[in-house]
Simulated scan of single mutants.
Amino acid sequence: MYAHLVIFIGSFIAFSLVLFLITKKNKKKPDVYLALFLFSIGLFQVLHYLRVEGIMKEYLPHMLRVRFLIHGFTGALFFSYISESLGLSITKVRKALIYLPAFIGAIFVVPYLLQSADFKREWEFSEFTPIAYYINYLIARGTLLLYCLLAWNAIQKKRNNLRKETHQWLAFVTAACFFSGLITSAITFVDFVIYDFVSYHWLHLSSTVLVILIAAKAIRDGHLSQQLVADSKPKSYQSSSLSEEQASDILSRLDAVMEQQQLFLQSKLTLPETAKILNESPHNVSQSLNQYRSIKFNDYVNQWRLERLIQHLEKGELEFKTLLGIAMECGFNSKSSFNLAFKKYKGMSPTQFLKSMPEKKVA
């Protein structure tokens, strides 16, 4: 009974967040994908509840096992949310490939769904579960874990271009989703070896905990207004014709140029110079950073410099060079600008950061 109550609460929270996202004014693509991700979890929970309570068997037999179609898309929807939040450039073909495993998994379930209601009632609560459903589950959970790992890798690559709060939010959601998927995968494996219907309650409870964690984190840190809901266009850009797709393309090319040509190493790098390399106007580059990443150009460049500096520190280069010397090599032009940038984005002074590092790296 308590398990059912928790599952009901999880579904209610998931659908509440979905309603909040889809009714938002000026919603963005990440909002839509996050809403679909949460909706798939909530619907999966509801269908499970109706099944174990016998309601589906009695009144909705044709809906039996439909949930197996739904959970296959959870991982793909989650990765779509992360990729859109990061502004990753993904072709239409690759977007289609992201959802391919879900459709492959559905193939194993469709034959069952085409059977009669009496057939479904007989099989649904028998002790025999066709191997096709375990294959479907394996594909669904396997792709979820894989997409979580890919999302985590993408987040870490983009971390120096994200606000600290944004990075923490995306990393938290990805980690929570991964461990939830890991738990459900373990439960499914145990159930395959030793059949025990009660274990499925724990499977759905882990999904409920995932939803509760997402909601709690969003409410506590204010992500309901900052991350889950994208702000409308600032007044200074109301007359701008720059679209979200154009801004995403500019930011992707800007990241690539910074990484490949290492422009941030130039201490006198300016916005006009960078915009010229991208063949874009300085205004469009500035707007893309301000509106879609909430960061100014100079701060964006300094984040790249700080990441490079930390890489040098982790390699133990303080043994041969001074901290200021390394900072200058990374593109900073003065001690004061370096100290200000470091404290702004790392939340501590360079000295405090060095004390927090392992001794062998700063010896």
Rank of each mutant, 00 (worst) to 15 (best):
I13T: 12
K335S: 14
K235C: 00
S248I: 10
L323M: 05
R94M: 11
I131G: 03
F197H: 12
P30R: 03
P101K: 00
D118H: 07
W202A: 05
S356N: 13
G87I: 10
F192V: 02
K344S: 13
A35D: 10
F125W: 07
E245K: 14
L100P: 03
F79C: 05
S281E: 13
H223I: 10
R253S: 10
T129G: 00
H204V: 06
I70E: 03
S126V: 06
K276E: 14
R163C: 01
Y237L: 06
N284L: 04
S180E: 11
Q311G: 14
K233P: 12
G42P: 11
G316A: 13
Y33Q: 14
L5K: 12
I7C: 00
I212E: 01
I41D: 07
I183F: 02
N160I: 00
N136Y: 06
R305E: 08
A247I: 09
A154P: 04
S40C: 09
A76D: 06
L263G: 02
A140Y: 07
D118I: 03
Y147G: 01
I135C: 03
H167N: 15
Y134C: 08
H201V: 11
L182S: 09
F20H: 13
K235G: 07
L38G: 08
V193K: 11
N290E: 15
R121N: 14
I326F: 00
T322A: 05
K344F: 05
C330E: 03
D221R: 15
E165M: 03
I183Q: 07
V198M: 10
Q262E: 15
S334F: 09
I70H: 10
K321T: 14
L210F: 12
